[in-house]
Design a protein around this nucleic acid. Sequence first.
DNA 1: CGTCGTATTGAGCGGTCTCAAAAAGAGTGG
DNA 2: CCACTCTTTTTGAGACCGCTCAATACGACG
Lengths: 248, 248
Amino acid sequence: MAWSEIPNMSCAGCPVGAAAVYGPAFAGEPEAITNLRKLRRTFRPRQIVLRQGDIPAHVYTLYSGWAYAYRILSDGSRQVLGFYIPGDLLTLQAFLEEPLSHSVKALTTASVCGFERVGFFEYLQDDRALRESLCRAALQSSRINEEKLINVARRSALARLASFLIVVERRLRARGLAGADRYPFPIPQSVMADALGLTPVYLNRTLTALRNAGVVDLRDNEIVVRRPDLLKAAEAGEWQPGEARIAY
Amino acid sequence: MAWSEIPNMSCAGCPVGAAAVYGPAFAGEPEAITNLRKLRRTFRPRQIVLRQGDIPAHVYTLYSGWAYAYRILSDGSRQVLGFYIPGDLLTLQAFLEEPLSHSVKALTTASVCGFERVGFFEYLQDDRALRESLCRAALQSSRINEEKLINVARRSALARLASFLIVVERRLRARGLAGADRYPFPIPQSVMADALGLTPVYLNRTLTALRNAGVVDLRDNEIVVRRPDLLKAAEAGEWQPGEARIAY
DNA sequence: CGTCGTATTGAGCGGTCTCAAAAAGAGTGG
DNA sequence: CCACTCTTTTTGAGACCGCTCAATACGACG
C-alpha cells in the first residue's frame, strides 16, 4: 500500500512548507509542524488518495507530484473540481467531520504528508494568524470556484481552455515550478475535458487548433507556450485560430 | 438614501437570527449580537446593496426580502453567483479586507442589519463554536459553488432549471418561508438566466415548456409546483416535456 | 509483443445561441 | 384613470458550437 514510516526528518527544510496553510507559523517554528505530521505516503499515478464519502482521519498536504479532485455523479459522469500541485492542502473539506464530497486521485507519482485531523485543526485554531490563514483559504477556495463557474457558464471552449492553461501556469509560477516559457503538464486530455465541462473529443479539437496555430506545444507532459499574447487573447475571446474556426 | 437610525430593538425576538452565522451564540445571548449591530437599512428593488470593488465597512445580514450576488465581466456580460433570502449573511467575503469580487443587488424591497466588520469578526473569533460556525460556512459556500459548477458544466438547460427551482424551494423551506406546494419567487427570468448560464430567450422557452407540461406555474412572483415528481425527474435528466422536446 | 490507456480524425445531429420584434406588465406623473 | 416609459416576457427563424457515435493511431509498460 505504499505506506512509509514517519520520517524523523524535520519539516524545517521543506521547500513547500511556506506555501501551505500553516505558512505563517512555518518560518518561525517548523518543528511544531514536524510534530504534528503523522505519516508520509506515496501514490502511483491513477491511485486514489482520498475517497468520496469517507471521513478522513488525516489531513494531507501534497509534497510532490500532481493530483486532482473529482466527483462521480449519479449518471456516472465525472466532474473534475480542481488540481493540486506541491504545497497544496488536499481538501480543506477534510477538516470538517463530514463525508468527503469528492475523491482525490494522483495524476503522477505523488507523495503526501499526513497530519492527524483534529490535532492539526486545533493547532491552526490556536494561533490568530493561522486561524485567519485557514479562514482566508476557505474563502479563497469559494472564490476560485466562482471563477470556475464563470468560466464554464460564460466562455467558449477555446476561451475556457486558454484560461485554464493560464491559471495553471500562474499557480505553478507562484511556487517556482514553471520555466521561462514552459511548465510541466501531466494532465490527460480526458481529465482536462471533465474539468472544463467539455467532451474529450471536442477538447482535443480545440487543443489541436491551438497547436496548429503555433500558440502552444503540448508534448511529453510538458507544455511550451509560444505565443502567450495569443493565449491571452483567446482567453478574452478576442482571438480564434485560423479563418475557418476549428480546422476539422 | 433609505438609511434608518439604529433601532434600539433587541435582536432577541429576531425570527432570522438563529439561522445566521452567529446562530450558535444567538439562543444564549442575543444581546451580544444586538450590541454589535450598528445599523439597519432598507433597499428598493434593483438597488445596489454592495458594490463590486468596494471594501465594505459593514457586514450585512439580510433581514427581509431577496437579493442576489453578481459579477460583471470584462466583456460586459453578467454572471449571477447566488441568491440571498432572509437570514443569509451578505457575503462572507466581506470579512476579508479585500475589494469585493461581486456586487449585491436587491430583488425585492429588502432590509439588512449591518455589523461593524472588524468587531463582528473578532466576536466570531472569540468563541470556539462561532469560529467553527464561520469556518463551516466558508467551506459550505465553497461546496455550494462546486454544485453550481457541476450544474452548469454537466446538465442540460432543463435539468439546470429544475435543479435550481428545487434548491430554492429547499432553502426557503428550511427557513419556514415556503408553503405546501408554493413559494415566493421574485426572480426575473433574465436574472435566473444569468445564474444558470443560459440566454434569457432560451430560459424562457425552457420555463414555458415546464409550464405547458403542467409541472410548475410561475406567476405574480410566486411559483406553484404542481408535479414535484416530474420536476425531480427533469433534474435527473429522466424526463422531458412533450414528445417534441421544447414546443416552439 | 500484446495490452491498456490516451490521442486523433471523420461525419452528422441537435441543443442552445443570435438577432429581431412584438406583447404584456409595472411604475410614474398628470 | 389615462398616457407614457421602462422593464420583463414571449415568439419566430436560422445559424453554429459542442456533442454523439465510431474507428483508427499512438505510446507506455510489463
